[in-house]
Amino acid sequence: MKADFQNAKSCIIALSSVTYAMKAERLLSDAGIAAFIVKLEAGQTRSGCAYGISLSCGHASAAVQHLSKHGIPYSEVLR
């Protein structure tokens, strides 16, 4: 899955905190979705410094569903 991910177009799910980003990364890993934490560039979010998790766009909607199920607040999906 990691090789697929590296070759696929990547999306970023922006999260409200670095702690939620860590939690999201581990939850997705447990669910078999490869993702890793990234610091978002200035201007990528409205509120300034933020973290997100980067993953294959093909997994983005499943990831968002999974995170919502576990009560992880995310602000947006950056494509």
Binding site: S16, S17, V18, T19, S47, G48, C49, A50, Y51, P73
Partner: peptide
């Protein structure tokens, strides 16, 4: 604390 830096108020979530 490294998040929401443009907001003058503290984040609304624990732990930040």
């Amino acid at each position: 604390n490294g998040v929401d830096s443009l907001d003058p108020m503290m984040p609304r979530y624990l732990p930040e």
